[in-house]
């Protein structure tokens, strides 16, 4: 099933707000926690208490430093997971059909039972969104929590991805980009949501919101002294101040 659907009824995805993400890693471990016991095989760890631990994560948060031309350097925390691309190269390269994009909602999934673990899809993904699980030998990736968002065993309000549900700052938003009135569509439109690596022509569904402009307050003193304390002395100042009540 590695032909991409011509269109998908919904375009489910995430908005990630780089202005708000404090880099707390909650989405990283919440994702691991849910998916360790959810869709497909567990996310294994190798040498978890050893000198060279390593494991499968579907979402990782980086931290970058940006030096503007003027002004001090900034730190931007940067979560990275599958963007559920419209033109998903990871899907079309897959020889087995294990990778596919769902026609109904655009979620890109791996059918682990069909996956031969060739790794080609991970090569094809520009964003490092796929990790081959070292214990299970199958490709793991963000499922957009497909086993949560429609899950009738969960209360309605919990039918959202684990990472979104846990994000303490509300920097992650989930919704349908096919609906221009949805929360995520509006956020992306209003805040200048952008694509990662547009030159890769993957048409990511997920959008990132840029950090707002960081500005120092007007450097000019807005607080004019009431009167020249030097000239009138403390008593003069006191009169002026208290005269105001």
């Amino acid at each position: 099933m590695t032909q991409l659907p011509a269109t998908t009824a919904k375009k489910l995805g995430l908005v990630i707000d780089l202005d708000t993400c404090v880099g707390c890693q909650a989405c990283v471990t919440a994702c691991k926690g849910w998916n360790d016991q959810g869709y497909g095989v567990p996310l294994s760890d190798q040498s978890p208490y050893g000198s060279d631990p390593s494991g499968t994560f579907l979402n990782r948060v980086h931290s970058y430093e940006v030096q503007p031309e003027a002004g001090p350097a900034q730190i931007v925390n940067f979560p990275r997971s599958c963007l559920h691309c419209e033109d998903a190269p990871c899907v079309t390269v897959c020889p087995t059909g294990a990778s596919y994009k769902r026609a109904e909602d655009g979620i890109v999934l791996v059918n682990e039972d069909a996956c031969i673990g060739c790794g080609l899809c991970a090569w094809a993904c520009p964003y490092g969104a796929r990790e081959l699980d070292a214990a299970a030998g199958v490709m793991k990736k963000c499922t957009l929590c497909v086993d949560r968002i429609y899950n009738e065993n969960l209360p309605e309000e919990d039918r959202e991805p684990a990472c979104v549900r846990t994000c303490p700052t509300g920097a992650r938003h989930f919704g349908d980009f096919a609906d221009p009135t949805s929360h995520v569509s509006r956020l992306a439109a209003e805040r200048g949501g952008f694509d990662l690596m547009p030159e890769m022509a993957t048409k990511p569904t997920n959008k990132y919101l840029p950090p707002r402009k960081k500005a120092a307050p007007d450097e000019a003193s807005l607080l004019a002294p009431l009167l020249d304390v030097q000239a009138t002395g403390f008593a003069g100042w006191l009169d002026r101040v208290l005269g105001k009540i």
Binding site: D19, V22, P72, V76, T169, K214
Partner: peptide, 11 residues
């Protein structure tokens, strides 16, 4: 300037 301080509007 990390964490909360990174998202602050002014530093």
């Amino acid at each position: 300037r990390t964490g909360y301080n990174a998202v602050a509007d002014d530093w």
